[in-house]
Amino acid sequence: MVGKLDIEVFYDNILPEPNLIIFSGRGIVCVWLIEPVPYKALPLWKAVENYFYEQLSYVGADKKSLDPTRVFRIDGSVNSKSKREVVVEYRHGDRYVLRDLQYEYLPELTRTGTGKKGRKGELVRLHNIQTLHYARLLDLIRLAELRNYDLKGYRELFCFLYRYWSCCLTDDPDEALRQMIELNAGFKEPLSEKEVIRATKSAEKAWMARNDAKANEEARKKGYPGAGYNLKNSTIIRWLDITPEEQRHLQTIIDANEKRRRKRERDRARTGELRRGQGAKTREEYLEEQRERTEDKAWQLQKAMERHPDATNKQLAMMLQISVRRVQQLKRLVKN
Rank of each mutant, 00 (worst) to 15 (best):
R163Y: 12
T131R: 13
L140K: 06
L123P: 05
P244R: 08
R73S: 15
G93L: 09
N19V: 07
E292V: 12
E295C: 00
K46F: 01
W207F: 14
R293G: 07
L240G: 01
N230H: 15
P68A: 01
D6M: 07
F10I: 09
L33C: 02
Y53A: 08
W165S: 03
Y105S: 00
E289H: 03
E104C: 09
R283L: 13
G153F: 02
I22V: 15
N257M: 09
A209I: 03
P107W: 02
Q251H: 14
S192C: 03
E108H: 02
K281T: 10
D171G: 09
Q278N: 14
T294Y: 05
E295H: 07
E8N: 09
V124W: 00
N336E: 11
C168K: 08
I7L: 10
D172H: 10
R95C: 10
S166D: 11
G93A: 06
S77M: 09
G113W: 10
D94V: 09
Y51M: 09
H133P: 04
E245V: 11
K120W: 12
L66R: 08
L66V: 05
I242L: 09
L157R: 14
E35M: 00
K303Y: 07
V334L: 08
K259H: 11
S57L: 13
W207S: 00
G277F: 04
P190E: 02
R99G: 06
M318N: 10
R178K: 14
K281S: 14
N19Y: 05
R276D: 02
K331H: 07
G113L: 11
K222E: 15
A317L: 01
L177T: 15
L140G: 05
L333V: 13
G115H: 13
G76T: 05
E85Y: 10
A185F: 07
